[in-house]
Computed example of a mutant assay.
Amino acid sequence: MRRAVELAAWQRLPRPGPLLTMAVNVTGRQAAKAAASGSVLQAVTESGVAHGTLSLEVTERTLLDAGDGVVADLERLTAAGVHLAIDDFGTGYSSLAYLQRFPVATVKIDRSFVAGLGVNARDDAIVAAVAALGSTLGLQVVAEGSSQPSR
Rank of each mutant, 00 (worst) to 15 (best):
N25K: 11
L74P: 04
L41E: 14
A9D: 08
E46L: 14
V58F: 05
A66R: 00
L7W: 01
A50D: 13
R12M: 06
L54D: 02
L41S: 15
E60C: 06
V40E: 02
A80R: 10
A8L: 03
W10N: 04
L41Q: 15
N25D: 12
R76D: 10
L64H: 11
A85I: 08
P18W: 02
E6Y: 02
L54Q: 06
R12A: 12
A8Y: 02
P16A: 15
L56E: 02
A34I: 09
K33Y: 06
V49P: 13
L13V: 12
A32T: 06
E75A: 10
V40H: 03
G17V: 11
A23V: 14
I86E: 03
A36C: 06
A66N: 01
A72F: 07
E57A: 15
K33M: 05
G48V: 12
A50V: 15
R12V: 05
A72K: 13
E60F: 06
T59S: 03
D68W: 08
A50G: 12
Q11R: 01
R61W: 09
G17R: 07
H83S: 10
A72Y: 05
V24S: 03
L56Y: 07
V71S: 03
L41P: 09
A8W: 00
I86A: 02
K33I: 00
V70M: 00
E57S: 13
E46F: 07
Q11L: 07
V82Y: 02
R61Y: 06
L20I: 10
E75G: 09
E75I: 06
R15K: 13
A9P: 05
E46V: 13
D73P: 09
A34D: 14
V58D: 00
L56M: 13
S37A: 14
S39V: 15
T27P: 00
A35H: 07
V26G: 01
E60V: 11
I86K: 01
G48W: 01
V70Y: 00
L84T: 05
F89P: 01
S47A: 15
V24A: 06
V40M: 11
A43R: 00
A79T: 14
L54I: 14
L64M: 14
T21M: 07
A9F: 02
V24P: 02
V44R: 02
A36I: 01
D87H: 10
E75S: 10
D87K: 04
T59W: 00
G38E: 06
N25F: 07
E46I: 10
L20V: 11
V40R: 00
H83E: 09
P18K: 03
R29D: 05
L7P: 06
L77N: 07
A23Q: 14
S37R: 09
T62V: 04
V24L: 08
S55N: 15
H83K: 15
A85G: 06
V71Q: 05
A85D: 09
M22N: 04
T21S: 12
E60T: 08
H51G: 11
G17H: 11
G69N: 11
F89C: 04
I86V: 10
P18I: 04
T78E: 02
Q11W: 03
G17S: 11
L19Q: 09
R76A: 13
R29L: 11
D73N: 13
I86Y: 03
S47T: 13
G17D: 12
E60R: 02
